[in-house]
Design a protein around this nucleic acid. Structure first.
Ligand SMILES: [Mn+2]
Ligand SMILES: [Mn+2]
Ligand SMILES: [Mn+2]
Ligand SMILES: [Mn+2]
Lengths: 215, 215
DNA sequence: AATTATTTTTAGGTAGTCCTAACTTAAATA
DNA sequence: TATTTAAGTTAGGACTACCTAAAAATAATT
């Protein structure tokens, strides 16, 4: 196993590769590599029984691949939690550090971190952290953009992207923020919400509202 | 820069490559690679102005190489400190984790760790941790084996080797332990010391006594 | 249905790090 | 000094993960 192979497995998982076929192109875009490189790597991952590949149709994770992905996501999110909770990082800055540390994290180290952090359930942007056994509850995949006007909801998770997190940080929006959806402006305009804590109205771009998960 | 290049620089430093010429063989033994691989890598490090190589004579670090080595040692020892102080690792078990984490540690992360740990001066086996500027005090290089009988000394540092640290842990000897040297047995026999804390006599092998630094 | 566009695969190369085996240089011994 | 042994370098090759460009397959459009 190598860091790059692990990142391939992880992105297939994050793109939904346990339930649907992921295309070569999605992986190439996600990892910023050439399509030919994806085909080549997928061939190796097939040999290692981590993915199933139907040529020209798509790629899915095997049980083994799924398990590996869960372990990686766990390590990634444990590091993010440590960086924010203990090292005073900004939420927007932790992803890139975690992206490399995750590959150098033994199971023993992950478990020790998990205990040290107090067995956290969520990473700083709301992602679920699997437990020692890789078990994790399903998290909401309802997106802010799809909530009807007037509904009161809690933001549970934000897609882990630096620019997005910085944008939302500046708006004062993060995981656990409670808001009422006031209206959706037309032509892919922003979603206007009111933060319950201080009654402030906030305008969240159409694109951002598709990357914010709510309950 | 790659992890392997960094490990080459680090071992040259640890072997004393700022003051004397290090041989190809020492590096090959230290990193467990073939002599030919060392020559090849050294050629690249010369191009990058990290080392100076006199063919058949030896290898030394440049100023730049020295600086890089210090940064690596600092990151390595900060991780070791974190693992022991916060994650409850055994001293003997931290080296291998630190050996890989050090290469994935940004300067920002190192500084954040340093602050979190309370600006520690020593790693768990007594190595000096350079500060934010790479400054560090000279540490003793007097070895237990060379202390005369009757002298009272403090163990300051132990060479970072798993087997050695385990051996000494079982004997109840670690950095900061104070002892009186009682005698040196002949024919490369053990050094017999008395631990001041509990008046226990301890027999430390000839080889181990050459890997324990004292003040 | 034919054409065009997109996606995927295949083929051929590069760069980094390692290896073994052969050769060269230096050091030790006789 | 001659010979042997040890250490270091060079040569040739393997393996991984990437690339670009060409070819093949599939999907979309006219
Ligand atoms: Mn992340
Ligand atoms: Mn990663
Ligand atoms: Mn160490
Ligand atoms: Mn290392």
């Amino acid at each position: 196993m190598t860091p790059m192979k692990e990142d391939y497995i992880k992105i297939i998982f994050e793109l939904g590769g346990t339930e649907r076929k992921i295309s070569n192109k999605e992986i190439a875009l996600g990892l910023d590599v050439a399509a030919g490189s994806v085909t080549e790597m997928i061939t190796k991952l097939v040999e290692e029984k981590l993915v199933i590949h139907e040529p020209y149709a798509g790629i899915t994770l095997t049980q083994l691949g799924h398990q590996l992905a869960i372990e990686l996501v766990r390590k990634h999110r444990l590091w993010e939690t440590f960086l924010v909770d203990d090292l005073k990082y900004e939420v927007a800055d932790v992803h890139s550090e975690a992206e490399v540390l995750e590959h150098q994290t033994s199971d023993k180290l992950a478990d020790a971190l998990y205990d040290f952090l107090g067995k956290p359930k969520f990473c700083p942007h709301g992602g679920v952290i699997p437990d020692e056994n890789g078990d994790y509850p399903e998290s909401s995949n309802i997106v802010l953009a799809d909530i009807e006007d007037g509904q009161e909801i809690t933001i549970t998770r934000i897609i882990d992207n630096h620019d997005l997190l910085t944008y939302l940080h500046n708006l004062g929006v993060s995981a656990n923020t409670k808001v009422i959806v006031l209206r959706h402006e037309p032509f892919e305009g922003p979603v206007i919400v009111k933060r319950l804590a201080d009654e402030t109205e906030i305008s969240i771009s159409f694109k951002a509202a598709h990357n914010i998960f709510v309950q």
